[in-house]
């Protein structure tokens, strides 16, 4: 089963709009419209971290959403990747200097892919997700590998005792 790699063909996303101008937010939604139709790639917007593989965040981190972003990330089952969309999500963007902005998403959770742009274009976003897929696949391989090693170790321990 581990070699089948369905993950790449069925990335479900969770989209969270942090401290943004909503420009990128709208672009993300544009991806779901018939014009761009990301379901072609098996992408579904789940709206639920427990079902999601890819966390797409637009906008930067402020004091109020810091805990939320971390919580959403923690609620996603492994393997998972984070895509930061737009300059705000990367660094805080034009809001960077605001008193309440801590910076980009990577201030709180590890980010795997940065999609540049203000706002990021749908094509770019899709490219970002595609880039995220190979990282996702890598993580999965690592995860099953780790599980394998752990399993072997347990068996070895079981046999020796």
């Amino acid at each position: 089963m581990s070699t089948m790699a369905f993950l790449k063909r069925s990335p479900w996303i969770l989209h969270y709009d942090a401290s943004s101008c909503n420009g990128c937010d709208i672009e993300v939604l544009a991806c779901l419209t018939p014009l761009y139709d990301v379901e072609r790639f098996g992408i579904i917007n789940t709206g639920n971290p427990k079902h999601a593989d890819i966390l797409m965040i637009t906008g930067g981190i402020n004091e109020l959403n810091r805990a939320v972003v971390r919580n959403l990330y923690e609620q996603m089952p492994e393997p998972k990747v984070v895509v930061a969309i737009g300059i705000c999500a990367a660094t805080g963007g034009i809001f960077r200097e605001c008193y309440n902005i801590a910076g980009g998403v990577d201030k709180v959770i590890p980010v795997d892919v940065y999609v540049p742009g203000c706002a990021a274009r749908p094509e770019m976003i899709i490219d970002g997700v595609v880039a995220a897929l190979s990282i996702l696949e890598e993580k999965r391989a690592k995860m099953t590998g780790a599980a394998q090693i752990k399993d072997d170790a347990r068996h070895a321990a079981g046999e020796s005792t």
Partner: peptide, 12 residues
């Protein structure tokens, strides 16, 4: 299985 808290709309 890893135990996660219930989903509360992202609120911890």
């Amino acid at each position: 299985a890893r135990h996660l808290p219930a989903y509360m709309g992202g609120r911890p």
